[in-house]
Nucleic acid binder design. Structure first.
Lengths: 212, 212
DNA sequence: GTCTATAATCAGATAGAC
DNA sequence: GTCTATCTGATTATAGAC
């Protein structure tokens, strides 16, 4: 507001192209490669356009996250609305590109206050919605694990799946098979055998490796 | 070797000072802030010295990791050599600075092949040693969790503690209390109540905030 | 909405003196 | 072992023309 510079509209095609390009660079080369020049280059546009649509690079990072976060909330909501929400949660996000994107964002968040707050808000929203669903689902289940609080179950499920995913993208998988078996035996006790594969409705990075 | 440039000895005081400085920058400002000039500045030395001790910035990152990795293996070994190795493992590394350091390294590893291989090697070493210890410890235990494979137990324990730690440094702790209670009730069944606090023998980042 | 031009900094890396 | 000097190129960001 105190800055007199003009700023582009949110729905401009170039703005979207720049965000897409920034995401690709982030996943493939890391946040260090997300510079105004490289982003513009990747989008086939001039570097100055980056500063027309985003006041600073920080603003670009924030917008990049917000766009995906909004999608992520919708995806989880759709996914949890099924007969076996625990299985759905467990099978959610096994995409290595999401792992890389998340890792980069978390690293960025370590030293960017606004982004950190945004990620915290988003994580809380996901967790609370998941918890509400699982609470209802678990009251029906009776097993040796029956007394596990839904909140803890969600933390454990999402932690394990995230770390396993990260380790696999490192090329390291010791203990993963045993872990899958353990988690899946617990899920089977709580929800029965999985009756379908609960993949997310829309792949989050649909264009990667596709149209260039 | 094909490079004719001289290179400093590994035990030079300045080399250590540069690695220390690089670590501090990495934790406080992220890997993007680890540039030759900033590292030298933080160490109170001239930028050119960075290139005297490390051929490239990549080599500096690798050395930074290797130094801490060697320490980490020693620490875990000391920690596991106790009557309650599962409790020790669970209480290990709750330092937020380690979380930040690890996050940055993982992000870097996404697009640096050599570092990625090094981290994978290190993670495998930690996990295999932990597994060997836990296997012995678990044969003594009998409980409703008695049939949990040690390999899976380690993956779950370390995953949960890492993610919880990362989330807390984001300022986000939904479900953490319930998770602690769950994990600790399982550990109590397997190893009994914790009879001491198993802190690591040496704090990994001893100089931070202390001597500047 | 997109461009040219440009300011001001900062980056990694190397040669050679002391 | 540390320094000065320097090359070469990239970076964020702004002003103003079209």
């Amino acid at each position: 507001m105190s800055d007199g510079r003009r700023i582009g509209t949110r729905d401009a095609a170039s703005r979207t192209a720049l965000l897409d390009a920034a995401e690709r660079l982030m996943v493939e080369k890391g946040y260090g490669a997300v510079t105004s020049r490289k982003v513009a280059d990747e989008a086939g546009l001039k570097p100055q356009l980056v500063h027309y649509y985003f006041r600073t690079m920080d603003e670009l990072f924030l917008e990049m996250f917000r766009r995906r976060a909004a999608e992520g909330v919708e995806q989880q909501r759709a996914l949890l609305n099924c007969p076996q929400p625990l299985w759905a949660l467990w099978q959610f996000s096994t995409d290595p590109q999401i792992a890389a994107f998340t890792t980069e964002l978390l690293a960025l968040a370590n030293h960017r206050k606004e982004l950190r707050a945004e990620i915290a808000k988003y994580s809380a929203e996901l967790r609370i919605e998941a918890q509400r669903t699982i609470e209802k689902a678990l009251t029906r289940a009776e097993s040796r694990f029956g007394e596990i609080p839904p909140a803890a179950l969600i933390v454990v499920l999402t932690s394990v799946s995230r770390v396993v995913m990260m380790e696999e993208s490192l090329g390291f998988s010791d203990g993963h098979r045993e872990t899958y078996e353990l988690v899946e035996s617990v899920l089977t006790e709580l929800e029965g055998s999985p009756r379908q594969y609960y993949s997310p409705p829309v792949p989050p990075f649909p264009t990667f490796g596709g149209d260039d």
